[in-house]
């Protein structure tokens, strides 16, 4: 199968710090890939390089046939990055809803402003997606009136309404109170079930185990393990993976 996301020889430096080391990654359509690892392992940076919120130092990123590599400069590069962003939806740890817009306005903002979609059409699409995350009845509220879980579900609806080819989740439940995590994970499961390609940076091992097709383990800027969740959780190859899973198991009890 042709990969929808292809990352080749990706390097990222923060100053002299080498945070991503020649990463190669391919994700095919409808695949759900979870990225796990300790904080500082580079998993969020890798995700953020895919839609160029972080500028890669070397290497190439290809999303749905649009390839951006080091040789591209100036206007051409900006255009490619713009195209890549149109094909990727992003969900942030801190939700980042626009506080001066209602829920509905948040969700239609992208299609109307960026894609120039007809407003009524955008509203229809937005309402469908808000209904999917169970928050259509909150469409006229402002974000400050929502719980963290509700905010994150709106953020998911906002990203989906751009009709992306792949969804990027950057620790979507890490800023939530424990009792609100479930509702967000359920929405994510639904999105996966509907056939969306997803790359998820998470600490939720239960989610990774249940929903992911593949789990990648990162440590010190490298992907140290890449396998099916069952295999990974039962027989971790790398001792660092084992330590990570053990820690999660003790945390569970």
């Amino acid at each position: 199968m042709v990969p929808i996301v292809k990352v080749s020889k990706l390097d990222k430096y923060f100053g002299r710090l080498h945070v991503l080391k020649a990463i190669d990654l391919e994700v095919v359509q409808r695949e759900v890939v979870c990225l796990i690892g300790r904080s500082g392992s580079g998993k969020s940076t890798l995700l953020r390089c895919i839609n160029f919120l972080e500028e890669p130092s070397h290497g190439s990123i290809e999303v749905d046939g649009i390839k951006v590599e080091g040789g591209h400069k100036g206007k051409e590069r900006r255009q490619f990055i713009h195209d890549v962003r149109l094909k990727t939806g992003m969900v942030f740890q801190e939700f980042n809803l626009f506080p001066h817009m209602s829920v509905l306005e948040n969700v239609i903002e992208g299609p109307v402003t960026v894609k120039g979609m007809d407003k009524n059409q955008a509203i229809a699409l937005a309402e469908e997606n808000l209904d999917n995350v169970g928050l259509l009845f909150k469409k006229d509220e402002y974000p400050n009136r929502l719980s963290g879980g509700q905010k994150q579900r709106v953020a998911i609806a906002r990203a989906l309404t751009m009709q992306p080819r792949v969804m990027l989740f950057d620790e979507p439940t890490s800023a939530l109170d424990p009792e609100l995590i479930g509702e967000v994970l359920n929405v994510m499961k639904k999105v996966a079930k509907d056939g969306m390609t997803m790359i998820v940076v998470t600490h939720e091992m239960g989610f990774a185990r249940e929903v992911a097709d593949r789990v990648l383990v990162m440590a010190e800027g490298e992907i140290i393990e890449d396998s099916k969740p069952e295999a990974l959780f039962k027989h971790p190859k790398d001792p660092r993976t084992k330590a990570l899973i053990d820690r999660y198991r003790t945390g569970e009890k």
Binding site: N51, L53, H82, R85, L86, T88, G89, M90, F92, E94, N96, L97, F98, E109, G110, T113, V114, K115, R158, A159, M162
Partner: peptide, 15 residues
């Protein structure tokens, strides 16, 4: 985060 959310939606700097 607000700028990043806007960028991720594909907004240009002026948008």
């Amino acid at each position: 985060g607000q700028r990043e959310a806007a960028m991720a939606l594909g907004m240009t700097p002026s948008q």
